[in-house]
Design a protein around this nucleic acid. Structure first.
Length: 260
DNA sequence: ATGCCATACTATGTATGA
């Protein structure tokens, strides 16, 4: 079973590109971030035509996440627990069942960017990460395999960026942001790309300044695996060729393959 | 120091992103 995450940067602008990739890669489950669409206008039938069940947690103009699955998908939840006043649509989960009858909880997340530093945006990012850690800690108790898949907006370490100087004053590379991600690993979660791939993999290249041709990328899209799911990991793939397509997102898909 | 580029919106510019 293949489980993917991809920040598509707008489902309306990215529809044909997203469909083309799904036809090529055919993941069983995919988490989309930044659909930038409310639930009603989401073009669900285009994805259903490829065999996907479509669940969305949308918002007008910004944010928004979706969870699509070819395999049975149940018990869908929307929103990250821990703050009833948080209206930003950044979290969706569901339980999927693989061909062998085993289940996995898939959580798709779009973690706040946090820039610029010195505004309320950065503490919002950190408090959101605290809520994610609380969710993860509680979820581990069930021992159901879990993947926390998404755009984390956190660069784990110096191997994951092209130039440290360019990111020292950025919320994506602050010590607090990186420490919170490490705490997720300390809980027992495995960074799948780090664990199973062959070296450097960026997942984002800014549209500006020719970052893609210069390979000025960063790694911020992650598949974080609970211990039960990490045991099932076969391989991880970053489909970076998609960044070179017409009308690309600035992020590329990350795909994990599991023995489920 | 700023724009670079891209997206959505009710917009002919502004907010947001990373």
């Amino acid at each position: 079973m293949q489980i993917a995450t991809w920040n598509i940067n707008g489902v309306k602008a990215r529809l044909e590109t997203a469909l083309a990739w799904l036809e090529e890669a055919s993941p069983d489950v995919v988490c989309f971030q930044e659909i930038k669409s409310e639930d009603a206008p989401f073009p669900r039938e285009r994805f259903e035509a490829l065999g996907y069940q479509v669940e969305t947690h949308g918002q007008k103009g910004f944010n928004g996440v979706a969870l699509l699955s070819k395999t049975p998908l149940e018990d869908v939840t929307r929103g990250l627990p821990g703050d009833d006043g948080d209206v930003q649509a950044r979290f969706i989960t569901g339980r999927v069942t693989g061909p062998g009858g085993h289940t996995v909880r898939v959580a798709g997340l779009y973690l706040p960017n946090g820039n610029p530093l010195g505004t309320e945006k950065f503490p919002y990012k950190l408090s959101w990460m605290e809520r994610l850690l609380a969710y993860a800690r509680e979820a581990l108790e069930s021992e159901e395999p879990l993947v926390l898949a998404g755009d984390y907006n956190v660069i784990p370490d110096a191997r994951d960026l092209y130039s440290e100087n360019a990111w020292t004053d950025d919320a994506l590379y602050q010590p607090e942001s990186r420490a919170a991600l490490r705490r997720l690993e300390a809980l027992g979660f495995t960074d799948a790309i780090r664990a199973a791939s062959d070296g450097q993999h960026y997942t984002f290249w800014d549209y500006q300044g020719g970052c893609w041709p210069k390979n000025h990328g960063i790694r911020i899209d992650h598949l974080m695996l609970s211990p039960q799911l990490a045991d099932q990991l076969v391989e991880v793939r970053v489909d970076d060729h998609v960044r070179g397509w017409e009308k690309p997102s600035d992020h590329v898909p990350v795909v994990g393959r599991f023995t489920l």
